[in-house]
Simulated assay, not measured.
Amino acid sequence: MPDTLDMKQVIAIALDAGKAVMEIYEKDFDVEYKDDKSPLTEADKRAHEIISEGLQKISPLPILSEEGKDIPYEERKNWERYWCVDPIDGTKEFIKKNGEFTVNIALIENGEPIAGVVFAPALGELYWAKKGEGAFKGRVRGSEFRAPKEEDVQALPLEESRTTGEGLRIVASKSHLNEETKNFIDSLQNTEPGTRNPELVSRGSSLKLVMVAEGSADIYPRLAPTMEWDTAAADAIVREAGKMTYRYDTEHGTRSTEPDTRHPTPDTQNLEPLQYNKENLLNPWFVVR
C-alpha cells in the first residue's frame, strides 16, 4: 500500500479538513475540556470526522486519532500499518486565534512514520512527505484550499541547518517553554563547541518540527510531554528532509524526568529515532535536528 499511496489524495483530505476548521475559526465557537483538562472545540470534532471518512475511502486501515476512541494495546500491537491523526495540533493556538495550529495525517508502518501531511490552514502552509519520494512545502492560496500549483511547491530542506557557530536557531514551544527546556538552551553555549549566542524562536504546534525539516530552525528540543499523534505527521517530513527525531531520555525505554545535560546537543550516533505504536502513547523527550 505505501508504494501505491497517492499523496495527492491525503493532501486533499487535509485541505478539506482545513477548510472546515477555518469556517469555525472565523466565527465564535465554544470550548469544552476533556478529562485531562485539554481543550476541545467543534473544529477538532469536525476535522476528525472529515479525515476519518476520507482515509477510509483511500485505504481501510486502522486509525489512531486524538479525537477517536481509546484503542487497547492488545489490539494495536498487531497493526503493521495504520493512520495516525491529530485533527488539530495546537488547539490552544486555535483558541488564541494566532494561526499556529495544524491538521496532521501520518501513515505509520512497523513503528516508523513513512508518510505525512501537515497543513496550517490559517497560514496557508502545507508540508508533506512520503518515504523515498522527498519532502515538500507548498503555499495554499485563497480560501478554496486547493492543492498548491507547481510554482508554489519547494523541496525540503529550503536551507542548510547550522550545526555550530553564531546564532544556532533553537525552536521551542510557545505554550510549553518549561524549566528543563530553558536549561537545555542555556547549556548549549557551555557544552557545544563553537556555539555562541543561540537564537530562540517560538512557534506553536507541529510547525516546530517542520521548521527543522525546512531548515529555518536548527534544533528543536522537546523536554515535555507530547503524544504520538502530536509528532507523527511532521516526523515523517523531518525524516524525508534528511533530519531525524531522536528520543532523548536518560535511559532507553523510560521517559526522563530530568534533562540529560551531558549531551545537550546530542551525538546522534548514540541516540535512537522516536518509535510509534508503543504500549504507552506518550512520547519520551526528544530532540529534532
Rank of each mutant, 00 (worst) to 15 (best):
G90A: 00
L177P: 06
V153L: 04
A115W: 06
I88Y: 01
S256C: 05
Q56W: 11
L223W: 01
K96E: 13
E151P: 04
R162M: 14
K19A: 07
G90R: 00
M211Y: 09
G116D: 05
P39V: 08
K19D: 07
S216C: 11
R196F: 15
L15Y: 01
E179S: 08
E151S: 14
N197P: 05
F145D: 00
G253T: 09
E109G: 08
E214S: 11
D28C: 07
D235I: 08
V118C: 03
F101R: 00
T4L: 12
G116F: 03
V118D: 01
V288A: 05
S256A: 14
L64Q: 06
I13W: 01
G167M: 10
S161K: 15
E258V: 10
E258D: 13
E240T: 07
V103H: 01
I51R: 00
F94E: 01
R196N: 14
S52Y: 08
S161F: 10
R76E: 03
S65L: 04
G194E: 01
F119G: 00
L271H: 13
Q154Y: 11
S187T: 10
L107H: 07
E80F: 07
T268K: 15
T261W: 13
P39M: 10
S256H: 05
D30A: 13
G204C: 04
A224L: 10
N178Q: 03
K149S: 13
M1C: 11
K131F: 09
E160I: 10
G111H: 09
P148F: 07
K97A: 04
A233V: 08
R139W: 07
T250W: 08
R203C: 12
N270F: 15
T164R: 10
K130W: 09
L274E: 05
D235Y: 08
E49K: 13
F29V: 05
L168E: 04
S52R: 12
E74R: 15
I24C: 03
M211D: 06
Y25R: 02
D186V: 12
P259Y: 02
G138C: 05
E100G: 00
S173V: 05
A129T: 03
K208F: 09
T191C: 09
I50A: 02
T245P: 05
T268N: 09
A233L: 06
A232N: 08
K34N: 12
G132N: 10
L55P: 02
A14I: 03
L55N: 04
K149P: 03
G132V: 11
V117C: 03
I105A: 02
I24D: 02
F119S: 00
G99L: 02
G124L: 04
E228D: 12
N178D: 06
G204D: 01
P259M: 04
N190S: 13
A147G: 05
E53S: 14
R141G: 05
W285V: 02
F29T: 06
L40G: 03
